[in-house]
Design a protein around this nucleic acid. Sequence first.
DNA 1: CGGCCCGCCGCAAACGAATGCGGCGGTTTG
DNA 2: CAAACCGCCGCATTCGTTTGCGGCGGGCCG
Lengths: 328, 328
Amino acid sequence: MAGIKDVARHAGVGVGTVSRMLNNSGYVAEETRKKIEIAMRELNYTPNELARQLYRKRTGIIAVLVPNIANPFFSQFVNYAEAELYAAGFKMMLCNTQNESNAELEYLDMLNRHIVDGVITGVHSLNVEEYRKIQKPIVALDRYIGEHIPVVAVDHREGGRLAAEALVRNGCRSVLHFRGAVAVESPYHERHFEFERVMARSHVRTIPYELEWNRLDFRYYQEIVQDVFAREISFDGVFGVDEIAIECMNETIRRHRKVPGDVKFVAYDGTFITELVEPSMTAVVQPVAALAKESVRLLSDLIAGKEYKNKQVLLSVTLRKGKTTVVP
Amino acid sequence: MAGIKDVARHAGVGVGTVSRMLNNSGYVAEETRKKIEIAMRELNYTPNELARQLYRKRTGIIAVLVPNIANPFFSQFVNYAEAELYAAGFKMMLCNTQNESNAELEYLDMLNRHIVDGVITGVHSLNVEEYRKIQKPIVALDRYIGEHIPVVAVDHREGGRLAAEALVRNGCRSVLHFRGAVAVESPYHERHFEFERVMARSHVRTIPYELEWNRLDFRYYQEIVQDVFAREISFDGVFGVDEIAIECMNETIRRHRKVPGDVKFVAYDGTFITELVEPSMTAVVQPVAALAKESVRLLSDLIAGKEYKNKQVLLSVTLRKGKTTVVP
DNA sequence: CGGCCCGCCGCAAACGAATGCGGCGGTTTG
DNA sequence: CAAACCGCCGCATTCGTTTGCGGCGGGCCG
């Protein structure tokens, strides 16, 4: 309620002096400093950040866009991103786009409205064109948007290879391969191409099963699994993102087939849920903490004025051995 | 870059007119309206929200404080809260306090700094006194803070009762009861008291096991379970929050005891992970969506100037039958 | 002793928008 | 025919800061 003017009057100085003291820029005598401190305490003064933001043209807020925050991968990502942003002096605005591209658009527009200083986008629904129009700090997670927008991604090719090799090593002959919708372009898909490539080379049969784009709710995954079993597909290995691999394993167990005896599983992402189930699942794990760290670092650089052209940070994945495969 | 003045000059009108048109308040002739529209388009004008916020003294941003967003309960809560806030015209600032009470304090201070219009706090680490000092819109999730701060909570007493009755019905004689640290006061604990009460009345032995306060990482839960089994405690029923109940079940299965044959499980919270495991777990489920909805509603009311005294919204829980108990 | 630098500080102009007030034509009303 | 009213609009102030510029004493140097 009390403004800087009130403090100044109360302390018998000018507003400039109070301001200088707040940001300790310029000279202010020790004695006046004391007087101002007292005045601030007595009036219970807190600077109004809005006025500062208006003058400085920055808010210190970063928007993080994710499709669904309840999804383990994204909740972990957001968790780390928040920590990194906080450490870098930023606050985080969270945007669950739920695949609503108008929500995505609205949040992007906040850059123009000066509400946020930057955006980290983990969503893929919007037309790429919309992003290109915006000449503001944006970092993309796992998506190539345009040459002026840096990307941080993982080496999905390597991920596909690791998964495939694991299943081959474990002697699988017929592998169920859950894959994202091919219609959507994403670095993301590389893992599927590479997976198929390695399998073909190793003469292992694969049964591709295409999933809808951006359906992250697990009810959907349950439906899919029901469908798979209804069709009496026979397989001795499974590869897919955490959620569907787990659902698939559960149904396998319910039908009294042995894991990993009869069927081996390799999950992709390796979030905590793969460690939560019994048997724990072998998984290609994405370095979520590093993804968050790099995203924030890149964005900070952009905000600080650094220019990036065709910048891509590629992080490597690892295979974590669980109990759904036998050979390491 | 272009400001309202530029638009006004470009359209040959005064700034007031442009402003009136933007907020359509007051009169502006159709013809001038057109001219301004053209000017806005040509200059690619977007109003600077910071200036508006300064004038209006509100930002439309709500801070949501949670201890750990990677925790399924909170990630679901945040998910719903974001949707409700968005629908109510607010943006969400997410704060992962990670039990750092200084972070909590810093975010509360944003109310004074006019960065956020309100706070929904799901964390319990800070001294209650700090909250009482703040005469701004705050809603507490599952915690009684003071008479001027509305609380939205679930009926934990009923939750404790439902869980206890389920285990009694299933014929348990000796139940392992994981409970939160009693040192911390919270409506939250009611479930444990009620649980013990019902068990005593039914002459079922309980083995209470006290957990540390606010440790939400699942490594910790693993340690606890290891400890339990190392001490060779014998039990035929388990009650605890999702994560620990699941860890405990996994270890039980690994030791070749049958679930639910030898040991029954009832989890508390009933997040998606209880449905993700095999066998799926019977759980007392908290109405997370409703919690979020009510929190937002109360906060909106507070911001709109409505006064609440000793307001408490109590939501009821339900028992969801899974496969870790046999009798419904 | 005069000029100059230096520590200290006040004044006023930004920042970009919202809005109360009053003015200006033109029409209705008494 | 004058007063009241109405649609429309510009001007100046306000929101609460930051900061450039310039002033004012006092000490130091030539």
